[in-house]
Amino acid sequence: MQTIHSAHYLQPTALLDFDNIAIRHLLHQRGWANLESVYDRVEAVYQYVKDEVLYGYCPDFQIPASKVLKQGMGSNLDKTILLMALLRALGIPCRVQADLIDKVIHRGLLGWLAYKLCPPDIYHTAMQMFYNGRWLTIEGYAVDRFYLGELQAMFPDYSGSFYGYGIAVLNFRNPPTRWEGGQTSIQAKAFVCELGLFDDPDTLFQAHPEIHKRSRTRLYQRVLRPRLNKRIAALRGNRTPLASGFVEPRLQELSDLKRS
Rank of each mutant, 00 (worst) to 15 (best):
L86S: 08
P59I: 01
F198I: 03
T137V: 11
L113Y: 08
E150W: 01
S6W: 09
K189C: 10
Q128D: 13
I81E: 04
G56D: 14
V68D: 02
G160Y: 04
W32Q: 06
R214V: 00
R30P: 01
P249S: 10
R227P: 01
H5Y: 09
A243R: 15
S159M: 00
V247T: 14
R225T: 08
I122V: 15
L16G: 04
M154K: 15
R214M: 13
D202H: 11
K213L: 13
Q152A: 03
L83T: 05
S66V: 09
F130W: 11
L87A: 08
F18E: 05
N238D: 14
A85K: 07
R250D: 12
L90V: 05
K79T: 09
L148M: 13
R259S: 10
D78Q: 15
A65P: 05
S6V: 07
R107M: 11
D19H: 12
F61Q: 00
W135D: 03
I105H: 00
L77G: 02
H124W: 01
I167V: 15
S75L: 07
L195T: 02
Y141R: 10
N171A: 11
V223G: 01
N20C: 10
N229E: 06
Y165T: 04
P119C: 02
S244I: 04
H5I: 13
T203K: 12
G108M: 06
Q11D: 08
A168W: 09
C94R: 07
K116T: 13
H106Q: 09
Y115R: 08
L110M: 07
V96F: 04
F146V: 12
S255Q: 14
S37M: 03
G164I: 02
S6I: 06
G133K: 07
L197K: 11
F246M: 08
C193V: 10
L90Y: 06
I4E: 05
A22M: 05
R216F: 00
V42Q: 13
L27M: 14
F205T: 07
Y115E: 04
R173P: 00
R259V: 06
C193P: 00
E180G: 04
R239K: 12
Q206Y: 03
V223F: 00
D121T: 13
S161V: 05
Q152D: 04
L82N: 09
P241R: 03
G72F: 06
K50N: 11
R231H: 08
A44H: 04
K67R: 15
V38N: 07
V104T: 13
I122K: 01
H8C: 05
V247R: 14
G31W: 08
M1C: 09
V192K: 14
L82Y: 08
S185T: 08
F172Q: 04
I81W: 05
G108Q: 02
V192F: 00
L86Q: 06
R41G: 03
L113W: 12
N132I: 03
H28F: 11
S66W: 06
V53G: 02
H208V: 12
V143S: 06
A234C: 04
M84T: 07
K50C: 09
T177K: 10
H5C: 12
D60K: 13
P176C: 09
V192D: 02
I4S: 05
L197G: 10
A98S: 11
G149K: 11
P209F: 10
L170Q: 13
V45G: 03
I21T: 10
I101V: 15
T3C: 08
